[in-house]
Simulated assay, not measured.
Amino acid sequence: MGRDLLHLGFLVTVFQQLAFSAEPCEDLFPTQQHVQAGENVSMSCNFTVYDPRTAPTVQWNYQSQTNNMENINLYMSINGNENRLYYRPRFEGRTWVNATGLAHGDATLHLAGVTTSDQGYFSCFVGLGFDCKSVAVQLWVSDHQQSRSALACGLAATCFPGLVLSLAAAVTLCM
């Protein structure tokens, strides 16, 4: 019940801002980012600050690529106040937005220790009173146990832990 009221309150704020927007938020195709499991990633969400005295409404969400029903709130800031009440433990302590960046038009989401289960769609919405901005990022995560490397001859080798491919064999394959 409490979560529903919070989401309803946020949606009312968003709809109020959209109702008075000079233009609707542009519908963007997601940009793609590729990262290795275990690495950190930053997903940009930049916007124009029209009035530095007015804090934007910012929300980052995650939707799983494999489970369409999984939609997680990663970050929410309304009137400059971050609301952590309904964050999910899966991302707790691994995601953040630099609050001082918001005053300068930067709502970049940082995600530490990426796992293969983090692969999916990340979306940012910024409400600016009479304007809004939305950004979408499709995150692709490669398992660090398996990596592709190109050989000088143009062949690709897939390397697995414990598998050793001798240089002589690789060169022989290239001739």
Rank of each mutant, 00 (worst) to 15 (best):
C132L: 09
S42I: 07
N71K: 07
L5E: 11
L85E: 04
A168D: 12
V49E: 03
S21T: 07
S42N: 13
T66K: 03
T95M: 12
S21F: 05
Y86A: 09
Y62W: 06
T115P: 00
V12C: 09
D143P: 00
L165R: 08
S149P: 00
P56R: 05
F15D: 15
E39S: 12
S134K: 15
A107Y: 01
T48D: 10
A168Y: 01
R3T: 14
N67A: 10
Q32P: 00
P52M: 07
H7Y: 13
T116R: 02
C153Q: 06
V12M: 11
W60D: 06
P56N: 03
H144P: 00
L11M: 12
L5F: 11
P89R: 08
M43Q: 08
Q65S: 12
R88P: 00
N73A: 07
S147Q: 09
H7C: 11
A169I: 04
L163H: 10
E70Q: 13
D143W: 02
V12T: 11
W60R: 04
N67L: 08
H34F: 09
K133E: 15
N83G: 02
N71F: 03
H110Q: 13
P56M: 05
V141I: 02
L102F: 01
A169N: 08
Q145R: 15
N67C: 03
L128E: 10
G2H: 07
E23R: 13
D27A: 11
A37W: 01
M1T: 12
